[in-house]
Amino acid sequence: MPPSTERRLASLSWTAVRDQAARRGSTVVWPFGAIEQHGPLLPLGTDGLFAERVAEAVLERLDPDLPIWRLPLQSIGFSPEHLGFPGTLSLPADLVIELVRSVGKGIAAAGFQRLVLFNAHGGQIGLLEAAARELRVLEPGLAVLPCFLWRGADGLAELIPEPERSTGLHAGLAETSLMLFLEPATVGALPAADGLAPSPPPPTGWSLEGACPCAWLTEELSSSGVIGDPSEASDDLGRKLFLRLVGSWERRLDALVRSDWPPTSGRP
């Protein structure tokens, strides 16, 4: 079968899937997003758009002969923290876990060696990690890698100044800039910095995310749904963020597909 630049698993016949899955390093990437409020500036589908666009760009840049394919975007996720704002949709945690288990079992049955959960919604990082462990027990021959788009990408920190780097958790400088680059027509008017009500800081030693987090609800932190400061967002910053995200994930996925890592059991 000639190499495909689209790499959409759903575009293959079952015989092509069988042949691709049997190749050394065969990998499936599953983008995850959410349908949730992103303040008055950004659309509900922001996270899904980021996951899909970065995944598409990465797969286009990889060697076309590598056996790596992608599933359609899982657009609705686990977003209970944003349910105080209209338009947010959230699946129950157990349903998301069952979804990962069910789809993962099918990927394993086809013969693929790895499933990458390529997630862009910070509120479901822990849930997908738990789902990945459950799937790994059920399918010991399938390596499962729950990844977060923004975590560990090279060079992002130097583009986002403090305090935004630590406190810009939702619809702030980074997300607004990336959307200005990818889909500028969907971005509302940027507010002035002094028009944003700052979130109340947690007590010393605690944080909204990180080492000692709390289970926060967005309406407790922000009347607009924005947690951070998007007032200095720009398409130029969004372009730089996009290039670094794509470059980092291209290197990671290329190394993964060409390797025998991580170890699995249950394969002959």
Rank of each mutant, 00 (worst) to 15 (best):
L208A: 03
P263C: 10
T204S: 14
P161I: 08
R61P: 00
L237T: 10
R252M: 05
C214P: 00
V29F: 07
D236W: 01
F148G: 10
S234Q: 08
R267C: 10
T27M: 03
A108M: 03
A21V: 09
V100S: 07
H38K: 08
P86G: 09
L253M: 06
E250D: 01
S102G: 14
V103R: 04
L142G: 03
L253Y: 04
L71K: 06
P67I: 08
P92L: 14
D65N: 10
T167I: 05
G247P: 04
T27H: 05
S224W: 03
L41P: 04
A189H: 05
P31F: 09
A22S: 15
L83F: 01
S265W: 13
L62V: 06
P198F: 13
E220W: 12
Q20S: 10
F78D: 03
E175G: 08
L44F: 13
P64H: 12
L243D: 15
E36F: 05
W216H: 13
I35L: 15
S224Y: 02
G188L: 13
L115F: 08
L59P: 03
P64S: 08
R258G: 07
L178C: 11
G225N: 06
I227H: 03
R267L: 14
A131T: 04
A185V: 02
M179L: 15
P268H: 11
T218N: 07
V100E: 06
G172D: 02
P31K: 12
L66Q: 12
R53M: 09
G111S: 01
P161L: 13
R239F: 00
A130G: 00
A131K: 03
V28Q: 06
R24Q: 15
L221A: 12
W216M: 08
A143G: 15
F118Y: 09
G155R: 08
R244Q: 14
A153T: 12
R151D: 12
E139I: 01
L49N: 00
E183D: 15
W249R: 02
E36Y: 06
P163Q: 10
S248H: 03
L178E: 12
L190F: 09
G104C: 11
G33W: 08
S224P: 02
P146L: 08
E209P: 00
W206V: 10
G225K: 02
A153P: 05
G33H: 08
G210S: 09
N119T: 13
F118D: 04
S90E: 04
E81H: 15
T176R: 05
S177R: 01
R165A: 14
E36P: 02
A34G: 09
